[in-house]
Amino acid sequence: MWSILTNNWNALLSGLGYTLAASILALIGSLIIGTLFALMEISPFKALRIIGRIYVEVVRNIPLLVITLAFYVIVPRFIIKIDGFTAGTIGLLIYTSAFIAETVRAGIEAVPSGQMEGARSIGMSYTQAMRQIIFPQAFKIVIPPLGNQFINLVKNSSVLAFVAGFDLMYQGKLIAATTFSTFDTYLIVGVLYLILTMPLSYLMRYLEKKWVTA
């Protein structure tokens, strides 16, 4: 097992780098897009609510692999040429954004309705009330479930392996195929994923302690 690690160190490290890059890009992107769709879902305008609802329901009910393959196969053929890494990261971003939208929506709705009324009653606009009163309270509620989504995202980034995304799982597959040491290779890959996700887990726990109990 040690020889697999030393002989393929560069490939594994590069895979780890791609996984990390895809995860960070998808995390930031899905947080932004997910929050936007959450805002649409709770918007006072019915048209926006319907668009938000359709997006969330369609995206979260299609397997991640199918969404990713759509970007890998269909988009390059008809729209613009993109590589496996880009297609995989976009697929991951879109897929995760639907779950983040639901998490953020639930967090905002968990803030008692009296908070919005209290804010509106002194003449604050909807946007001011959201920014000053609702978001700060929803943020605290949302941290623990958001942590779950982020950890899932890092693990789901292994979908890149199916579209030649050069990630950790992709390198693992190659190494296993050339060395025939399937068990040892995937054990190493598993440990490397843990090295990525465990600190994230602890970070979320730390934020939870710091902000949620405050």
């Binding site: 009296g114 908070q115 009324e117 509106r120 009653s121 002194i122 003449g123 309270q137």
Partner: peptide, 21 residues
């Protein structure tokens, strides 16, 4: 409406103070 509300205050049964302030 925001101009009305600036001039007409409201006190609620359940206070509705801003919990984060």
């Amino acid at each position: 409406m925001n101009r009305i509300r600036k001039n007409v205050g409201m006190v609620f049964q359940h206070f509705n103070l801003y919990a984060n302030k």
